[in-house]
Amino acid sequence: MIEVNRQGEVWVFAEQSEGVLNEVSLELLGKGRELADKLSVELASVLGGSDVGGLADELVAYGADKVYVADDKLLAEYQSKSYEKMLCELIGRHKPQIVLYGATVIGRDLAPRVASAMKAGLTADCTDLQIGDYEIGRGKEVHKDLLLQIRPAFGGNIIATIVNYDRWPQMATVREGVMALPGRNGKAKGQVISEKVKISVEDLSLEILERHREQKKVNLKSSRVIVAGGAGVGSKDNFRLIWDLANCLGGAPGASRAAVDLGYIDHDHQVGQTGTTVRPALYIAVGISGAIQHCAGMSESAKIVAINDDPEAPIFGVAHYGIVGDMNEVVPRLIKAIKSKA
């Protein structure tokens, strides 16, 4: 753990594999910029790897004032122990006040190890981050300008704001797509600082024997139209209607977690706090109740149509158009109406 340090920078862990930056790191730079400006401190990114210096400019173009580059052959492949050591050493050296990670397979493997080694706090899957104050005992003790780590909790009945006021850095993970990708400015200026870290072969405890990458089957994030089905669709067969509606709109099929858990469609299609966050021009929610974890991933869509047979379903609260009815009747009518207009 490090002492509370008000001048500390805001950091974003730059995740790269095979020389390509993960987009979530760039999205975090957008949010990081906002937090750093609010605190009047600098925004920095930490980049580890071997021969990755070239990526530093990209991080600057997306808003980093500084990039700490730990270039080392031993960091060529991500491994929990070696990367944990790198981050802990750099955090100890520069004492940032905030460190953000993408909630990716790597981020979720690494961040808890760093938190444990630093004896610092970590909040997973935040849906928003802000700067604000924390009062204990009606103003007896006030902690100013903390990172407010906001996430839905517990079955979705509540939104919790988590703070970490005494053992820093304040750390959080954020899913891909939750923060908007900032614009790229190729002319931005930033400092690239080369860092030496003490890592030895013993820190590489695993041997990667084989790796097989699959193309992501869907790219929900870039779809203009998403038709999402929930548990209310009723069966995998019936989910065909969701695909049909998506196809006739040139869109992609999405799903609630309940639909994924029921095996109607695979996890790549899940929208929400623990799935993908999307902002399409049109989002059609079919047989989805509208739990907060789902809404966290779609409420910023430009137009939302909700189809649900329960007029009290919370999904209607975020919708622009609400159709109360059985999806088995409504969806075919909708397909027909769209086809006849086209």
């Binding site: 753990m1 004896k119 610092a120 706090g121 970590l122 909040t123 924390y134 407010l148 780590q149 839905p152 909790a153 979705g156 009945n157 509540i158 939104i159 919790a160 704001t161 988590i162 703070v163 970490n164 006021y165 005494d166 053992r167 509208g290 907060i292 809404c295 909700a306 919370p314 209607f316 609260g317 975020v318 919708a319 622009h320 158009y321 609400g322 159709i323 109360v324 009815g325 059985d326 009747e329 409504v330 009518r333 909708l334 027909k336 109406a337 006849s340």
Partner: peptide, 28 residues
């Protein structure tokens, strides 16, 4: 180190959506 600062129950603001009848005309 992490403390719960605030808990808000979720009230999805009824944004006043447009009610569409589930009929062919409504949907059209």
């Amino acid at each position: 180190p992490t403390k719960v600062h605030r808990i808000q129950s979720v009230v999805l603001t009824a944004s006043g959506h447009k009610k569409v009848e589930p009929t062919e005309e409504g949907i059209r």
